[in-house]
Design a protein around this nucleic acid. Structure first.
Lengths: 247, 247
DNA sequence: CGCCCGGTTGACTATGGTCAATACGTGTGG
DNA sequence: CCACACGTATTGACCATAGTCAACCGGGCG
């Protein structure tokens, strides 16, 4: 329950997300300006980063770990509407209150920027604004792919799609190649997967068991999945094959 | 099937969407630059504006009418992922090919900008980029509300939510007040509503009939809906009442 | 007039949700 | 060291919601 505020001040030049986050296009001057308004913050798995309605004194980049953005209906039904991996951006410039629940899924480190000065920078530094626009457009594409999954796919296709999406995201960070045999480390519990896919956790469990029974995946513990033939998994997503999805 | 290219060149100063579209923040110089690269284009209801995979030689603002953005699985299931009303923006700067099907739902007039010069303007004209960022963030919020609808709401709640969203959007244009009795003009067929909500058209029809039977709505023809008590309709959306949804 | 398109309604079915029992793994305390 | 409890996951039996397939309605247009 303790929100650690690290005094460790990592130099931007050595930051692991330097070339993918909002700061990706910044030159050294601009980085320096960011350094001045940034601070780090840690959350442990399960901890809330913000509740819908909260005052948000900062915007931030995820440096390490996984966080979720979600919405809840009054009767408790919840839907995840964003999955934040390292380099992803949290918060909306120009909006002081969070309208979503943001939760640390694993242990998370954020690089926070005080809101007001950051909003100033967006106006004065085109490189930050440009990058933010690109990132937002990417998120919008991801949201639209997700809408197709939520609205039109079967439970089995939803699970296969989620595994494919996570595999792809992990591979972007250079850890995996997307051919033949791959290993997927699920950052999510069954319940979080259910919230992501608009299913119940029981259905998630059953569909994973089914995919295992049919040897499309193998389980190594509950959270590690080995896929012998990635194409076979893609076949189960219902998508236009050859990974045609977005790009 | 004819794509009319109007020679009518409407002056930006008199444009009905002047203060809501990408150009909203532009000063007179900037507007002049836009005038130079813009042209109008008309589509009739049902006509395709672009297919997924098509080359898109322009980006555009919707001036008049309603268009939809949608995705289709190989077996024909389709999901609408965007609903474009006047002032909304079509296309992604920096991407030459459309990844979505964009279709005119009613007769549509677009204000098109040639892609290359527009992309230049984004880099040189902060006002355009700023406005585009704001609009994209709004769309992302809308997409997230939509995800909650698709993933967690019942058929009845989906219909009520859609009606509420359309009522709200229409009222933004100053046509309606959102208290007590209101009238909603549906721009969508039952099938389009189904594609929006991830339902079948039969379920849409049945739920509309049910809401009518319970006097929450009245039908005036197939496409005009009268709501006696807007709060009662909101009650059916499953949301956090008092219109708390996004803003 | 008759066709076509969009919409409605009905009968039946299938997919995924609900409720409940059981398993598994890990950390805690006797 | 074992017992237990808690959180996470699996599995089963049953049920409800929405999908499928099909018949039918009604208005507008050739």
């Amino acid at each position: 329950m303790t929100e650690l505020v690290l005094d460790t001040h990592v130099n931007c030049a050595e930051c692991p997300i330097r070339h993918r986050a909002v700061c990706a296009k910044c030159d050294t001057d601009e980085l320096e300006a960011l350094e001045r308004i940034k601070y780090y913050r840690n959350y442990e798995a399960g901890q809330s980063i913000s509740w819908a309605g909260d005052e948000m004194p900062f915007v931030a980049s995820v440096v390490k770990g996984v966080a979720s953005i979600s919405q809840t209906l009054e009767d408790g039904r919840t839907q995840m509407v964003g999955l934040l991996l390292p380099s992803d951006f949290i918060g909306r410039p120009g909006r002081g209150k969070s309208v979503y629940d943001v939760t640390a899924v694993s242990d998370v480190t954020l690089c926070c920027f005080r809101r007001k000065p950051f909003e100033q920078m967006i106006l004065s530094t085109p490189h930050v604004a440009e990058r933010l626009l690109d990132m937002t457009l990417d998120e919008l594409d991801a949201a639209r792919e997700w809408m197709l999954i939520l609205g039109r796919k079967t439970a089995r296709e939803k699970i296969a799609s989620l595994l494919a999406i996570i595999a792809r995201r992990e591979s972007t960070f250079g850890m995996t190649k997307l051919t033949g045999k791959i290993t997927i480390d699920l950052p999510l519990t069954r319940e979080a997967m259910a919230d992501y896919l608009g299913l119940t956790l029981e259905t998630v469990s059953r569909q994973i068991s089914a995919l295992k029974r049919e040897s499309i995946i193998e389980l190594d513990g509950k959270r590690r999945i080995r896929v012998d033939d990635f194409q076979a998994l893609l076949q189960e997503t219902g998508d236009d094959m050859d990974g045609g999805m977005i790009a």
